[in-house]
Design a protein around this nucleic acid. Sequence first.
DNA 1: GTCTATAGATGGATAGAC
DNA 2: GTCTATCCATCTATAGAC
Lengths: 219, 219
Amino acid sequence: MTDPQSHDAPETEEAQAATKAAVFNAAERLFALHGFQNVSVRDITAEAGVNLASVNYHFGSKDALLFAIFRKRTGELNRERARMLHEAAERHAGKPPVREILEALFAPPLRWGDPANDRRISIQFIIRARSEGTAEMRDALQNDVSHLERFANALIAARPELPRETVYWRLHFCLGMVHNNRFAEFDRLHHLSGGATREGDVNGLLSRMLDFAEAGFLA
Amino acid sequence: MTDPQSHDAPETEEAQAATKAAVFNAAERLFALHGFQNVSVRDITAEAGVNLASVNYHFGSKDALLFAIFRKRTGELNRERARMLHEAAERHAGKPPVREILEALFAPPLRWGDPANDRRISIQFIIRARSEGTAEMRDALQNDVSHLERFANALIAARPELPRETVYWRLHFCLGMVHNNRFAEFDRLHHLSGGATREGDVNGLLSRMLDFAEAGFLA
DNA sequence: GTCTATAGATGGATAGAC
DNA sequence: GTCTATCCATCTATAGAC
């Protein structure tokens, strides 16, 4: 924009954005598949088909790249969950039932995990960040509980007869159910059940999770 | 034993065993606290107060040390769970109810996680191995489902009216509840609940988990 | 802006002295 | 058997050529 040769700028900007996006996507993919410490800047730039210095030029450092991916994806996921919770509240005069609150919590990560969904890799990245993330990521997770507070408050309103402490623990159990949906765990379950569990049936899995967790909240 | 100077052997063997144990314990502790890739052989030997070559001398390599810890601890945990399941079966003529099956699944890792328990660090190591472990560990987890098969079969017998597929998925949900019991997740929950959740009350947490999961199996 | 070449640091593993 | 000194591979980050 400040460049007088404006007919050159679009090409340059596009090339820059394309390189940055290629690095971003390659990094997200490799981190999700192989773990954060097992992927080098060389792996990422080779996968993206760009030169080695691109990571530092566009993101500053390997850790900053990781954090950029983390922040973008968690932001998207949290917004999607918040929107579903808001819609559920609107449908029920501000007091949605437990099942619809849990659906807003479960459905977005499950839909992302659909084998037919491009975001499949993003959700695996987020799950990995919870255990392998940098100190910066863990601090961000630790401090940004405002997103979960909305869910906790909705659940407390839906089950006012339960002690608040009990609701928090049960929310913790539900989050454990979500975080366990990793490739390796699905594979293990598939092996254990002799092939009876089908990973691809996202809506079926959502129903199963809601049945289980809703009953747990009624106890 | 084959050494004619038998009065020297005990001292040497003890020293050897002591060094090996020091390496083992320091490694388990550091891996559990900081992750596998973030701990170097130098960190381990420094923490153990032994020389750098000890890891390779006693265990062959860093990865072999990791795997030795993994195999020992998972073996201990699985035996403890199997024993509790066996005892539950004996109490109920071979057909224990869902709650006692789940107690055999939940109680050992929870008791290990008690802040007053020396094994607190071991269970964090195992949980970390599930997501950060080497290919060798993941293969071992993948192939050793015999331990879980006993629990799956007991649950199928306790709920014969449910489709087997449903029982497998619900077992998967229960395992997610267990695997989510990490330091970082407890801290986050404590923060979210404004300090209402007490991590130290192991028996209370066990009851809460059993209430939630048992109700989920009744759905 | 892009890319090559390389600096600088750290890692696992091991040879060889004792 | 124990330990020091060192090898060699690999990593991130960056300087400097174009």
